[in-house]
Write a protein that binds this DNA or RNA. Sequence first.
DNA 1: GAATTATCTGAACGCACGTTCAAAAGTAAA
DNA 2: TTTACTTTTGAACGTGCGTTCAGATAATTC
Lengths: 180, 180
Amino acid sequence: MRAAALRLFAQGGYAAVSMRAIAAEVGVQAGALYNYTPDKQTLLFDLMESHMTELLAAVPQTGDADPQTLLHDFVGFHIRFHHARPDAVFIAYMELRNLTEANFARIEALRRRYEDGLECILRNGVATGAFAVHDTKIATLAIIAMLTGVNTWFRAGGRLSLDEVTAQYQNMVRKAVRAD
Amino acid sequence: MRAAALRLFAQGGYAAVSMRAIAAEVGVQAGALYNYTPDKQTLLFDLMESHMTELLAAVPQTGDADPQTLLHDFVGFHIRFHHARPDAVFIAYMELRNLTEANFARIEALRRRYEDGLECILRNGVATGAFAVHDTKIATLAIIAMLTGVNTWFRAGGRLSLDEVTAQYQNMVRKAVRAD
DNA sequence: GAATTATCTGAACGCACGTTCAAAAGTAAA
DNA sequence: TTTACTTTTGAACGTGCGTTCAGATAATTC
């Protein structure tokens, strides 16, 4: 059910996908879904929360490597992780307004934790002099927006491989934050 | 009617906003709207097309200035233009999937024209040696995603002014594409 | 194989949807 | 004031919505 809902929500949007449509995708009547979720809203929230939790569990831990290496790895991780889950990423960014206020706050808290991981790398780099960034919060948001944007246009089998694309983003990010 | 639809679509999403809700916002019955739009889908398309047309009309023309200046001005323009129209920007990015195939193609063509303007600046800069970018198309998409992301978090009256934010983006973009 | 538990069906609830249209109301020219 | 025209109303159309639930079916346990 969750896989079907993920696919359909990403395709048509939360509001435009009916419980009957999800049930049909599963091969079941609509009523049966309510054995697995209390309501449609909770189904959406669970999909988002799972995505964010997986993201936080998978993000590389900042060990004792130097800031340049950590940033390089973060960029590679973000692009690869998001590319592997286009539907979940799409939903997590587009359906926030369909969450209740309480559910929205919980998802936002998870997102902020993810952003904090990147900002920590940037702050350490600024502290060591490896990076020159006026405001690490802005740089964090700028980098994440840039990286997540890959999902909107990249298609496997196109002009460039994901590895080539990743290398170019790593290069641009490296230059954008480095000390002059 | 268009102003009301813009606001409501941005707030709740195209699918979740009824013609009756738009009519109520205008202070009229639903049937009256059909004197001004043939249907809801065309209303959405017209809003998007107007936005893209205004964007293309407002983008600074690339004169004979040097690439660094043109890029600097483009970044400033993009942030400022988008910040002034949060609802239209939101709709133009989020409601693409609610367009018919034909309407989608027309909006995408306009968006590509906008992207081409930035890519032209980058290509010229690479040609003169001012910029070092492996792939100007990727750099274009990366920069635009980064800049448009400002709309998702910036609020006037916060820690930083829009001018300060803009200056930092101009700085990051400048560094990201410059020759080593 | 009987009893128990888990799961699913199919119909029903009240409600809201986009759109249409005859009739009513409002506006402007003669 | 009459005429011609534009705009709005309010009801109606068929359809689909999220959710509930009694009863049918399937799976598991003894």
